[in-house]
């Protein structure tokens, strides 16, 4: 069962003695439903990773960094989790995110999706879906609404979209939301 896109899984392990890019490793690429599950069942659950690690699943050819030409004008829908959600919800939310990507769940706006990243951090884990053009409001909002519904987030919980250009020039906590759903 071929996927619409080939996807690359990346793993980041924070070793401070090395440059950021040297800590980023390409794990494997998948382009069928069957290969996706083979990969998923072979790797550690996100909740079992140590703090400072990331997984990223990106379309083949796009590097999981905002500097990539297909990311730099884009941004991300960011889901910030409370510490206790690592044990209760993190793996479910990340798997749901992956299924949204490989299943092309955002209709014609799936073309706008670049990938997704999960950051495992002691102060609170984060999951984000990256899209390629922060100015394409209709597409970004459609993706955000579908994504929020697929994650099963309550209407009261607001998630925000931040342009990478803003995230890159300000500290993460100060980057403002361009859109919210």
């Amino acid at each position: 069962h071929p996927l619409q896109n080939r996807w690359a899984l990346w793993f980041f392990k924070n070793e401070r003695s090395r440059a950021w890019q040297d800590n980023l490793h390409l794990v494997t690429k998948v382009d069928t439903v069957e290969d996706f599950w083979a990969m998923y069942s072979h790797i550690q659950l996100a909740s079992k990773l140590s703090s400072g690690c990331d997984y990223a699943l990106f379309k083949d050819g796009i590097q999981p960094m905002w500097e990539d030409s297909r990311n730099k004008r884009g941004g991300r829908w960011l889901v910030s989790l409370a510490k206790q959600q690592r044990h209760s919800e993190l793996d479910r939310l990340w798997l749901e995110t992956l299924l949204c990507l490989i299943g092309e769940s955002f209709e014609e706006h799936s073309r706008e999706v670049c990938g997704a990243v999960i950051n495992i951090r002691a102060k609170g884990d984060k999951i984000a879906v990256w899209t390629r053009e922060a100015e394409s409001q209709a597409g970004v909002l459609h993706i955000g609404r579908v994504y929020k519904e697929r994650l099963g987030l309550s209407a009261k919980m607001v998630i925000g979209y931040q342009a990478h250009a803003d995230t890159a020039t300000k500290s993460h906590s100060l980057a403002k939301n361009k859109f919210v759903v």
Binding site: H1, L3, V33, E34, E96, L99, I102, G103, E104, S105
Partner: peptide, 20 residues
Amino acid sequence: GKKQYDREFLLDFQFMPACI
């Protein structure tokens, strides 16, 4: 055509043994 798969379809494959 465009290959879209809903979550239930994808989940059906999770524990399926690989065909040899």
